[in-house]
Design a protein around this nucleic acid. Structure first.
Lengths: 190, 190, 190, 190
DNA sequence: CATGAATGAGCCTTCATTCAT
DNA sequence: TATGAATGAAGGCTCATTCAT
């Protein structure tokens, strides 16, 4: 018996993300997806139980990967603000270079599928932010606000910056990036 | 002949907004909507040409109303920061008190329906922001950035605040509101 | 109380015929028709019981009028062939000058509505043809065939000629008309 | 995987033609059709893209088949008139034995679907007639008229004959067929 | 008589999912 | 595992006709 083809699974994921980027979740039609991947509809169901499983699985994997790699980006021996900026820059770069994946995650967050993602995966992401914010607050560098708020604010401004760049409203150069981060920093600094 | 009931149109709009709040645009089923309103499906088509017309019409009316009323909120004789804060507060209050409408508008912005809204309606909204920002920049009070960016940042933070409140992550009290606005102000101030 | 307006009835009939000419029977939408006439849908139902009644009534009136006027065209003191040609010319002219009415009658004949037309009206039409053919056959001028066949053949060639003219495949000039009639005559003459 | 059943496609076509024969194009209801064939409605859409595709495809196939087989009927070594008569007889027979298909083609010609039939298919049909008429005209046997007219006349008389037979107004025997063809011939001969 | 609102009954089409090989 | 066929369950929209003033 043939073994499930990992390449095929990757292809399905890639095309799904592409479709969501282009047309949103409502744009995922199992038949279209299969055609884009170059397999038959039924084969889709060999790799994913159903449409929801497809989306939730992809979401989980994306969130997991992002939180894993970004936690590695935290360079220990840097002043707090620069440490944050490094992370911020990493995120901006990731978002720009992985536009489709970012878009996917963003859309998932506002969709009913988000609740179906295993809590464990999301917690890892929260943990990292929590640690970082607690340090900043303890050192009196950033506002003493709920982590959720701080994360939201940073996330929102990040998303806006990326959106503006993607829509060609502004360029992503040193100046704009610095300006945008200074807004972020000014917003949360004490 | 039977008299056209203006209440009926209002009811359709109200229920539509409620559905979108609960289940997003994909949740609008003409049959369900009709049932909720207490009319027959075909009657829906007496008031709106089709589903798209329903959504776009409602969107247009919402944006129009919001830009009209909020422009009235700009109190002339107040220092710039307070003027902005007053407007910000108005928006926060509007968003909180009109959660569903806000959610509707937010969702429209990210949907393909947004492009179908008559340009004239959206321009009015842009105009107000533009005027306000130009003054602030001329007086050297806020960062000399593209209006689009400033509006995005303020909008994003506003949306986040409202979302946090709605999700019961934080309370909407004087302290939090002030803190949030200070983040906004710090982000854009010079 | 206002009296049923004969002008209005005529207008309905005229517009119905126009619609059928442009889009066939399937193209008759009561709402469209009303709009074209400039009255409300319900008013349509004041003048005609329903859609079928509308079509059947119009058909009946058209067939009646045509058989009445064309029977007047039979000039008594002419040789048989010329008598027939005169009638043929009258029909051709009528068809050309009343393209829409002709088209309507033609379409009715092939529709289920045809059977609903009162037999009495159609008989008058048959009678005229019958008389004419009987004379021709008695005098040995035309083929001794069933009247139905003769009428069909003449009618078919007439319709074709009119169609060709209407589609601009040929012009309606003396030459073509003569040629066409000679085909008719050659076809049925003894 | 289940094997696609060619019989099924044929069945759909057959039932469609039957419906059109009985009730015209307006009588085609996808649900009824599916029930007649004994499949589900959605299966219909596996074989044909939509209703229009169903009708146009069937039309195309019918016209193609007819023009192919009838062109084979032209026996080379026969005097012109007899060659024409052979073809005419073939058509009459075809029309009688394929009443429903003939009716379908006749109705398509007068419907908006006709324009959707690939030009290439129709051209083959035209070509055959053209060749035949040109020979006749060159030899001075038939009237020097536009091919379109000649074809129309023959077609119209053919259709009438078939209609009369089908409606039981006359029988299809040697005598009537000969008489009818003699009308055709007399109409077009020089 | 005149009318605009209201509606029920249909009809076409889409699509995720399952079947059967 | 892989697949094309098959389908049930919707969902959007149309339209002739009736209602109520």
């Amino acid at each position: 018996m043939r073994i499930k083809d990992d390449t095929k699974r990757e292809a399905i994921i890639e095309k799904t993300i592409a479709i969501v980027f282009e047309q949103g979740f409502a744009g995922i039609k199992m038949a279209d997806l299969a055609k884009r991947v170059g397999i038959s509809v039924s084969t889709l169901y060999v790799y994913f139980k159903n449409k929801e499983d497809l989306i939730v699985s992809i979401s989980g994997e994306l969130f997991k990967k992002v939180s894993e790699t970004s936690s590695k980006e935290i360079t220990e021996d840097l002043p707090y603000k620069l440490k944050l900026k490094a992370l911020w820059l990493y995120w901006v770069n990731y978002s720009i270079n992985h536009t489709k994946e970012s878009s996917f995650m963003h859309q998932v967050k506002q969709s009913p599928y988000f609740e179906k993602i295993p809590q464990s995966i999301l917690e890892a992401k929260h943990k990292m932010g929590k640690d970082l914010f607690e340090i900043g607050k303890k050192e009196g560098l950033i506002k003493n606000m709920d982590n959720e708020i701080l994360a939201s604010v940073i996330g929102a401004l990040l998303a806006e910056y990326v959106r503006l760049i993607h829509d060609n409203k502004i360029k992503m150069d040193q100046k704009n990036t610095d300006a945008m981060f200074s807004m972020v920093w000014d917003a949360i600094k004490n």
